[in-house]
């Protein structure tokens, strides 16, 4: 996906007839466009396409952190390696049979689906509230921007403190309300760690979702609601029959952006629940192998897999949903 090969570079259209003298306006503009795009394409090639290709290459070698350059090409052994022991037993090794990896895949998928589902519902609610006319709307919109503006690491720390087992305010509130009988170690216990991560992520990203949905809502003409009101249609029905179909494109785009973002989550998990196998995601485990455990090539293989999963997901989503992400067609 991100490779920027010469085919995607602007192709100068050949003119309908051989031109004499000075080049035509369209040609001049296309030539300028080429030079305008070139620096960006080169920059993106250097920081995206090239490193991606190297990552894929490393995933096929036995490179380690200290030995990047003398690495041997070992084919797909980081992914799957089948070995016949002399005793006749076959053993399988590699990422594809690594339970830790599949645990991370499962964690990531679970996290992404649950968080995006909640964010979509909450985002819709917040967007509907912001779309209504009421006093203090500007203030509420400003307020919901705050979680979005706070750096993820800071949110993780803030919530880590609030979710602290002994001194955390959340336990205190829940105890006072009688909802729990003893303090919960939210971030440490395997049962609740994922919940903790979800809570923070939903808190932090619902505003983004709400703003995108709100933009979609504001394109629904107001007369539509008035007409429905005059016809005496129940607001809930109006929502499902009129509003939802109309904001579907905006919603689809918002969901895909959030989904892609969720699938690559790293920082929140890394800081809020360090080293918890209940929350370790694909990004976390790849980096851990690559940098911390000095299994550079193994980590590269895992990140290549993550990339593949996301690429397939995007392709499927665009294909199924016919989402016009680039906005080219709706012009």
């Amino acid at each position: 996906m991100p490779d920027i090969n010469p085919n995607t570079a602007p192709a100068l259209a050949t003119p309908a007839e051989p031109h004499k003298g000075s080049p035509s306006l369209q040609r001049q503009r296309q030539r300028a466009a080429f030079w305008f795009l070139a620096p960006m394409l080169i920059a993106l090639f250097c920081v995206a396409a090239w490193p991606l290709m190297r990552t894929i290459y490393f995933s096929l070698t036995d490179a380690t952190l200290s030995n990047l350059y003398d690495a041997k090409f070992i084919g797909f052994q980081n992914y799957l390696q089948v070995r016949e022991l002399s005793s006749g037993r076959t053993i399988y090794r590699g990422t594809l049979v690594d339970p830790d990896w599949w645990n991370a895949v499962w964690n990531t998928v679970r996290f992404s689906v649950v968080s995006v589902a909640f964010e979509t519902v909450f985002g819709l609610i917040v967007a509907l509230v912001l779309n209504a006319e009421f006093k203090g709307r500007g203030f509420v919109r400003a307020a919901i921007l705050i979680p979005w503006a706070i750096p993820t690491i800071v949110s993780a720390k803030m919530w880590g403190w609030m979710l602290n087992d002994q001194f955390g305010i959340l336990n205190d509130i829940l105890l006072n309300l009688g909802l729990i009988s003893q303090r919960i170690a939210w971030t440490a216990s395997t049962e609740t760690a994922m919940k903790a991560v979800l809570i923070v992520d939903i808190w932090k990203t619902t505003p983004f979702m709400a703003l995108l949905i709100l933009a979609g809502l504001q394109m629904v003409p107001r007369d539509m609601y008035e007409a429905a009101k005059i016809d005496g249609i129940h607001p809930v029905k109006v929502f499902f029959k009129v509003t939802l179909p109309l904001i579907r494109p905006a919603l689809m785009v918002a969901v895909i952006f959030r989904m892609l973002d969720a699938l690559r989550i790293f920082d929140l998990v890394y800081v809020l629940t360090p080293n918890s196998s209940a929350t370790k995601t694909m990004s976390v485990i790849s980096r851990e192998n690559m940098i911390d455990f000095d299994k550079f090539a193994y980590g590269a293989a895992q990140s290549t897999l993550l990339f593949g999963i996301i690429a397939v997901f995007v392709a499927a989503y665009i294909w199924i949903g016919k989402v016009d992400l680039s906005g080219e067609k709706s012009r």
Binding site: K20, L25, Q26
Partner: peptide, 25 residues
């Protein structure tokens, strides 16, 4: 005006072919 390019045919200004001349000229 030259803002669009003609696909086929000829355009003359005072007898000069301007098919590929940019608008400002």
């Amino acid at each position: 005006s030259g803002l669009e390019e003609i696909t086929t045919g000829d355009m003359m200004f005072d007898g000069q072919r301007v098919n590929n001349v940019v608008p400002s000229e």
